[in-house]
Design a protein around this nucleic acid. Structure first.
Length: 298
DNA sequence: CAACCTACCTGGAAGC
DNA sequence: TGCTTCCAGGTAGGTT
């Protein structure tokens, strides 16, 4: 689930259900969440739900600020449960409110929960690309001087926050930029294209409620439709939607990158070395999941 | 310091 | 069928 659009979707879906509701209990079922010692939270209400990069923040009411922060990492999900709904599998934590509960589900157990009075201490967060402060000029300043390839650069949460492996490839494709280009070598026009593509791709994914791969989706969980619009991610060997040339998969920093060689005009790259991998298709990514509504049931 | 690599986890799909 | 291998939406922390 979880890059910026998926996290934003979760926040938008849970906000109307949780805002203003009293927290009765936060039960940690898996110590790997590493939530730390809980401060006095009982009886406080959820003042608002918001997002900081890929962190989901429950801001609690009270004289002193207090936040319950959730990071979904690779496979985490937050599901709304009514009192009579069955317990989902891979349940790692339960946030019980007066009107229902938020279930933290996470098969791979990489997700995190954290109590904090200061969200800034959750880690370095770069510019949020959906905020007004993300300007072309700001992006140019951040890119300047970096020898890192632009695709791994986009994954750095201390520069921009919220972009992950799927949207990095999609954004670069939309901007017609070679993922191997050194970040600091983009000229002014290319930086402008990257800025516009970042905004467009993320905004479009948010409109579609994000990307969902697995086909067994609980109806009340976030079940996005952006996977139907993916232009390159998971499409190794299949035709580019723009020009028909086969999409190529390469590995950068041990992670898959997808791009269309024809669209980026192979040739004048200046990035680091790249390892080619045998072009095995990503079977699990091919399967489109059933179309469902974005909004949680009830 | 910047860039890179590995470990952390589990489960699903493909290969044999 | 069953066993093995590879892969996955992220990031902290260690190594070059």
């Amino acid at each position: 689930m979880p890059e910026l659009p998926e996290v934003e979707t979760v926040v938008r879906q849970l906000a109307p259900l949780a805002t203003g509701r009293r927290i009765e209990e936060v039960r940690i079922l898996d110590p790997l969440l590493r939530a730390g010692r809980p401060p006095a939270y009982r009886g406080r209400t959820v003042a608002r739900l918001c997002r900081r990069g890929k962190w989901i923040l429950f801001e609690l009411s009270g004289a002193e600020p207090l936040y319950l922060a959730c990071h979904l990492r690779m496979t985490g999900r937050l599901l709304w449960r009514g009192p009579d709904d069955p317990l989902p599998s891979h349940l790692r934590a339960r946030i019980r409110l007066e009107n229902g509960e938020v279930a933290f589900v996470d098969p791979r157990r990489l997700g995190r929960l954290a109590w904090t009075r200061d969200p800034a201490r959750l880690g370095p967060a770069g510019v949020d690309p959906m905020e007004p402060s993300f300007t072309v000029r700001r992006l140019a300043r951040l890119l300047a001087g970096s020898a890192q390839a632009i695709k791994p650069w986009l994954l750095r949460q201390d520069r921009l926050c919220g972009i992950g492996n799927i949207y990095a490839s999609e954004i670069l494709h939309a901007a017609r930029l070679d993922p191997r280009r050194a970040a600091g070598t983009l000229d002014a026009g290319e930086v402008r294209r990257l800025h516009r593509a970042t905004r467009r791709v993320l905004a479009s994914a948010i409109r579609m409620c994000g990307t969902t791969f697995s086909d067994f989706q609980d109806a009340r969980g976030a079940s996005g439709r952006f996977q139907e619009l993916l232009a390159v991610y998971g499409r190794d060997g299949r035709p580019c939607r723009r020009c028909g040339h086969p999409v190529r998969r390469i590995v950068q920093q041990q992670r898959s990158t997808f791009f269309c060689p024809a669209c980026v005009g192979e040739g004048r790259r200046t990035g680091g070395p790249e390892k080619e991998k045998a072009g095995r298709d990503h079977g699990r990514l091919r399967k489109p999941s059933l179309s469902r509504s974005c909004s949680p049931r009830e």
